[in-house]
Every structure is written in C-alpha cells, then in structure tokens.
C-alpha cells in the first residue's frame, strides 16, 4: 500500500509543533488519497511519542529507538528513513522545513533520486496532463511554495518519481487533533541491523538549545514592529501596548535584523505565519515577504509615516503618523475607554 509518511521531529521526548501541523495536513491528504497515514519517530527515549501522535490520526507509527539517535545527526537518521521508504514505498514523504528537516530531506531525496520541494506553504492533491507525452497523471501532490523572493508562488509536481518529497514551513498549516480517535499500530524498526558504525562520522561535542519562550502563532492580538520603529527602546512601547491588550509582540525581518527583537517573533516568509483577530503593524512597510505571513489577520491596522507604504493597501485602518506618538495615545485612550 502506498501510504503517506511524515517524519516526526523530536526534541527531548516532545514531538515538534511543525510535525503535528504536518500530521494534521497529511491526515486530510491521506483521506483524499484513500490511503493510510504513517509517521516515523527516530530518537532515544520514545515512550511518550505514541500518545502524542495518535490523536492526529496516525494509522501506523514506526519507531526507531537507540541512544545514539539523539540528538539528531544526519547520516543515521537518513539511513533509517531511506531504508524505511525503500521497504514501505510511501507515495508521499513530508518533513518540517526546519534546521533538521532541511538537512535531512535533501540527503534522503538524493539517495532515493526523488524530487524534493523545499519550504512549501500549501499542499494539495490534483491531476496533471503532460501534453508532450500525452499522459494523464492522477492524484499528484501539488507542492506550492513562494519563490523569487516571495514575488511568485510556484506549484511543483513530481510526476514520475516516488515518493514525492516536500519540506513544509513551520506555522503555516493548522494543528488540529481529532476529538475522537483510535490508537494506531506501533512498529519497531530493527535499528541495530539498519545502522553501521560508519554512519556515526559526525560527533556532537557541545550543544546549547534555548527553549521557545513565546508562541506568537496562538496570540489573538499581535502588535508588530518594523524597521520604522527606529530603536530597541521604541520597541518597548509595542510590548506595553501588547501587554495591555492581552496580545504578543511580532516583528518584521528588518526589525529582527536590526536587533530590535528576537527571531522567534518574526512574522512572514522566513518567520511564522499568523492569523490573529487584530494585527497592528507599526512602522512596517509591508514587503511581500512580510504580508505573506499576516494577510489573513481578521483586522489590520497600519501605523506608518509613509502614506504610500504597501502595508496600507491591505490595512483596514491606516494611521499616518509616528509610532512613538501614536502608541502612547492608543494606550491612553484604551485605559480611558475600557471597563
């Protein structure tokens, strides 16, 4: 049976958000294709993984457990994924477009000589007619991704090679566990048999990973700042307003690059995609890459000195003015008018 396989990224016993987002999407694709949803978990202590993934509708969970498999290194994980794909022959294989997924997926694609599309923001199932050879391909994976600096959206297909491989950006698909689910089947993989000592040629000698502190994806209100905010000090105003409104602070890439705030707050193509009920864009010009990450917000307010800033075209309200002047007034009038 040619199923759909998702590589689950695991950090200290927790399945990564992006993998759960992928499982949610993959479940609906598997439903359309009338096939099963498979997941593979590779790591050191994986006892807690089944309970985390089965609520997402996983039919078969492959488990490769070995102390040498955590933290992630390329070749051992690639060897297991390659072997599993050769054995089970899934029609589609999906990875998160993360530090790990973008390191692993190309290695796998090259070994299997399969097509791989990076950083997809949408996945769909569809047909394709190839005129040149008069052939109709049924139920292909449409891998949709921004390209050319975000100015175009390309739909990529792999008509001939299997599996069809893609990495998917974190934060663009919605994560939704099932209300009612059945535990799937667990299949242990023969790790010792599948790996050789020569797979461990890269040794990790030191590692500092920070825990994620903020999750702007879940915030109902986002006060986001761009380069136009001007300084780290002015950014404090955004934190004040966000706290007052019960929201979070977001940022454009330019603001992050300028050091006004951290990367984990970045909204847009190289950050996260958000859909809050209110997005207040402060001093953000609205490059296409930023707009792609926030245009689905229910309401958008732009505060910008430039009346022609592109962001204003998608804003419901535009305040032409300086962020340092406007935000204190918003804070004052909110305090005055809210009960």
């Amino acid at each position: 049976m040619n199923n759909l396989l998702v590589y689950c990224e695991i950090d200290e016993g927790q399945v990564a958000e992006v993998s759960l987002e992928l499982l949610t999407k993959a479940r609906s694709l598997a439903h359309q294709l009338n096939c099963q949803l498979e997941a593979v978990a590779i790591g050191a202590s994986l006892d807690g993984i089944p309970d985390q993934v089965f609520p997402y509708g996983v039919d078969i969970l492959y488990v490769a457990e070995d102390p040498r498999l955590s933290p992630y290194t390329t070749i051992p994980h690639a060897s297991i994924v390659n072997r599993l794909i050769r054995q089970e022959q899934p029609q589609i294989g999906l990875f998160g477009a993360t530090s790990i997924g973008r390191d692993l997926a190309p290695r796998v694609a090259s070994a299997l000589r399969s097509g791989l599309t990076a950083d997809c923001t949408q996945l769909e199932i569809g047909d394709h007619y190839e005129k040149r050879i008069d052939t109709e391909y049924k139920n292909l994976l449409y891998q949709i991704r921004p390209a050319f600096g975000g100015n175009i959206l390309a739909t990529i297909i792999n008509p001939e090679t299997r599996p069809q491989l893609a990495t998917v950006r974190e934060g663009v698909m919605k994560k939704e566990p099932l209300a009612d689910f059945r535990a799937g089947e667990i299949r242990k993989l023969p790790v010792v048999e599948w790996l050789s000592d020569t797979d461990f040629v890269v040794e990790i000698i030191d590692r500092h990973i920070e825990q994620r502190k903020v999750n702007i994806k879940a915030a109902p209100i986002i006060v986001a700042g761009g380069y136009g905010v001007g300084s780290k000090e002015n950014f404090q105003l955004l934190y004040d307003l966000a706290e007052l409104l019960g929201g979070e602070v977001g940022a454009s890439r330019a603001a992050v690059d300028a050091g006004f705030t951290d990367h984990e707050r970045q909204v847009g193509q190289t950050g996260v995609t958000v859909r809050p009920k209110l997005y207040i864009a402060c001093g953000i010009s609205g490059q296409i890459q930023h707009r792609a990450g926030m245009e689905e917000s229910s309401m958008i307010i732009s505060i910008n000195k430039d009346p022609n800033a592109p962001i204003n075209h998608i804003a419901d309200y535009t305040i032409i003015g300086d962020v340092g002047e406007v935000i204190p007034k918003m804070i004052r009038y909110y305090k005055k008018n809210s009960k």
Binding site: R113, S114, T318
Partner: peptide, 27 residues
Amino acid sequence: PTKVKKIENVVFKAKESKVLAPSDADI
C-alpha cells in the same frame, strides 16, 4: 524529477483602508 506546473504572481488585494490622522480625536 521536479517540474514546475504553474507560476502565479503574488498579488495582494487592496482593501478599502480608512485613513486616520495621529490626532487625539482620531485615535
């Protein structure tokens, strides 16, 4: 193995934006 099936230009639909001044009254 990968083929480009379709290329779309990203065009954002302009909304009817209400323009306000940074005045106390407007805010």
